[in-house]
């Protein structure tokens, strides 16, 4: 039982992380008693569970049940919508998951509820390897989004953008007086009273994403935001 790599090192596929008997977590594969990363990422080890994990530095959004995402309506069907969720599969929003009560395709026009090009915040309610992700917009806090702007960041940087106990995101919100929604698929919605504030929030979020794996980030972002507030 040996681990060859230090925690937080950047690893690549084809590199032996450890030998022996561990648990292979996300981004790790076991081949003949040896553990390899499957992706380029930073290595982490969870001592309690003896679990090896590699956190990706790049990569697309992969849907997960319970994720809150921001999606773009791409197609309107008779009783459903196809939603771009930035993943390998299109999200399906059935009318029964979008409208309270009964939806009658003969009388009701799906286009009146969500039209092509509109933006929805949704939750993924079911997804497995045989079905495309099913969305809902019926719960509280979900539905159509209007105004503001949306920027796309690497979904792997979301934990950093949120920060410990939500510290990072609330700091950005406070200093820029913006309303910010973070979709777990890496789409971030920002809305503020002034373009300057929106722009500032955007700059800060972009910087978080760019320097997601660099320490001292919170301080730098704080400095950036305070400079903005003082002007």
């Amino acid at each position: 039982m040996t681990i060859n790599i230090e925690v937080k090192d950047i690893v690549t596929p084809g590199q032996v992380i450890a030998e022996g008997d561990y648990k292979a977590g996300d981004g790790v594969i076991k081949i003949d008693k040896r553990y390899y990363p499957t992706i380029v990422g930073t290595f982490s080890y969870f001592e309690k569970r003896e679990e090896l994990r590699v956190r990706p530095l790049e990569g697309r959004y992969y849907p997960k049940v319970g994720d809150f995402i921001i999606g773009y309506v791409e197609d309107v069907k008779l009783t459903s919508w196809m939603v771009n969720i930035r993943g390998p599969y299109a999200g399906v929003l059935l009318a029964s998951n979008a409208v309270r009560g009964r939806f009658d395709p003969i009388k009701d026009d799906a286009r009146r509820i969500y039209d092509t090009g509109e933006v929805v915040r949704a939750e993924i309610v079911s997804f497995d390897r045989t079905r495309d992700p099913q969305l809902t917009t019926k719960d509280h806090g979900l539905g159509k989004l209007n105004g503001g702007r949306i920027i796309e960041i690497n979904p792997n940087h979301i934990p950093r953008l949120v920060g410990r106990k939500g510290s990072m995101i609330s700091m950005i919100k406070k200093h820029t007086e913006s309303r910010i929604l973070v979709g777990q698929n890496g789409r971030v919605w920002i809305k503020s009273d002034t373009l300057e504030n929106e722009e500032m929030a955007q700059t800060a979020i972009r910087q978080v994403s760019r320097e997601a794996h660099v320490s001292g980030l919170t301080d730098r972002i704080k400095l950036l935001l305070e400079e903005h507030s003082n002007n």
Partner: peptide, 12 residues
């Protein structure tokens, strides 16, 4: 994610 026909969304 219909990459092939990315539609501009209303917010953008």
């Amino acid at each position: 994610m219909a990459d092939f026909k990315v539609v501009a969304n209303a917010i953008e």
